[in-house]
């Protein structure tokens, strides 16, 4: 009887803190990134979003991995091999470690954030490759807000929100740390929309994204994201306004979904 009671207490306490019902380990989403100019689509790269459960000696974390790889036809012109990783709490998506390792047409840059969630600080290490092949490092201690997350963790955190009661026009601002700077990213709920995707016809939540303090992704409703209106809230389509034309991210396949 004691065991049953303790189990109940654990369940109740879990219920008070747990929020993530959308993402679990073993999920893999594959996207095609395209450049759209006057309605003509050009496939540029494959983007994947993967989750895995990672065990350390003391805890279990969720490893969120995003990669961007250019298609072979582009490799000789502008090769991209980008890796973005975040190690987060599986329930609250609180990040503990973030890594960014990018290779974009010869430009190499690495970033690492070691979060101290008790004191709300981040130990940041930035390293860039010089032309002679050597690296220069820059280490910084940055004070962050209690809810500040990296880009990858923010993307997954967005999926944990309950949009079912949201009304069109309602917005939420999340703080994202990128390149050692905190940025306010506002997500505005625009309503629901049914769209055709590679994984079928999906009823989706339509969101507008805007970075308040940056020129990137600026503008009203130019940068849009569609999340499936189910428990998984899978991002199936995204549209971004860029200098000439616009960029698109279309889902190709989805596997290992939680619900």
């Amino acid at each position: 009887m004691k065991n049953v009671f303790s189990f109940l207490i654990v369940l109740v306490s879990l219920g008070l803190t747990a929020q993530n019902q959308a993402v679990a380990g073993g999920e893999k989403l594959v996207f095609t990134a395209s450049y759209n100019m006057s309605g003509i689509l050009n496939d540029l790269a494959q983007v994947t979003m993967e989750t895995n459960t990672v065990n350390t000696s003391s805890s279990t974390l969720l490893h969120l991995k995003c990669t961007a790889t250019t298609f072979s036809k582009w490799d000789s012109f502008f090769k991209i091999r980008d890796l973005y990783e975040s190690y987060v709490s599986p329930t609250s998506i609180t990040p503990y470690l973030y890594k960014r390792d990018i290779y974009e047409g010869g430009y190499v840059k690495k970033m690492e954030y070691k979060y101290d969630q008790k004191n709300h600080t981040v130990k940041s290490t930035k390293s860039k490759k010089r032309k002679d092949g050597t690296y220069w490092d820059e280490k910084k201690n940055i004070a962050i807000g209690a809810n500040t997350k990296d880009l990858v963790a923010t993307l997954y955190k967005l999926r944990t929100f309950d949009f079912s009661k949201a009304t069109p026009g309602k917005s939420k601002t999340l703080t994202v740390i990128f390149d050692n700077q905190e940025e306010q990213v506002t997500f505005t709920f625009l309503g629901t929309e049914t769209i055709n995707t590679a994984i079928g016809k999906k009823n989706c939540y339509k969101l507008a994204i805007a970075i308040n303090t940056s020129d990137v992704l600026k503008g009203t409703n130019d940068n849009l994201l569609w999340l499936t209106a189910d428990d998984n809230k899978v991002p199936v389509y995204a549209k971004f306004k860029i200098a000439v034309g616009n960029g698109e991210l279309r889902i190709k396949s989805a596997s290992g979904l939680k619900n």
């Binding site: 879990l14 803190t17 747990a18 993530n20 019902q21 679990a24 380990g25 073993g26 459960t53 990672v54 350390t56 000696s57 003391s58 805890s59 279990t60 974390l61 969720l62 490893h63 890796l83 990783e85 190690y87 709490s89 599986p90 329930t91 609250s92 609180t94 503990y96 470690l97 890594k99 390792d101 070691k114 979060y115 101290d116 969630q117 008790k118 290992g256 939680k258």
Partner: peptide
Amino acid sequence: SVEESIETLENEIDIIDEEPVVTN
């Protein structure tokens, strides 16, 4: 990178939110 990250998480990072993973 995963191997290095696990090492970093073990030795350098204080994980305060230790909860079991809710799997399928």
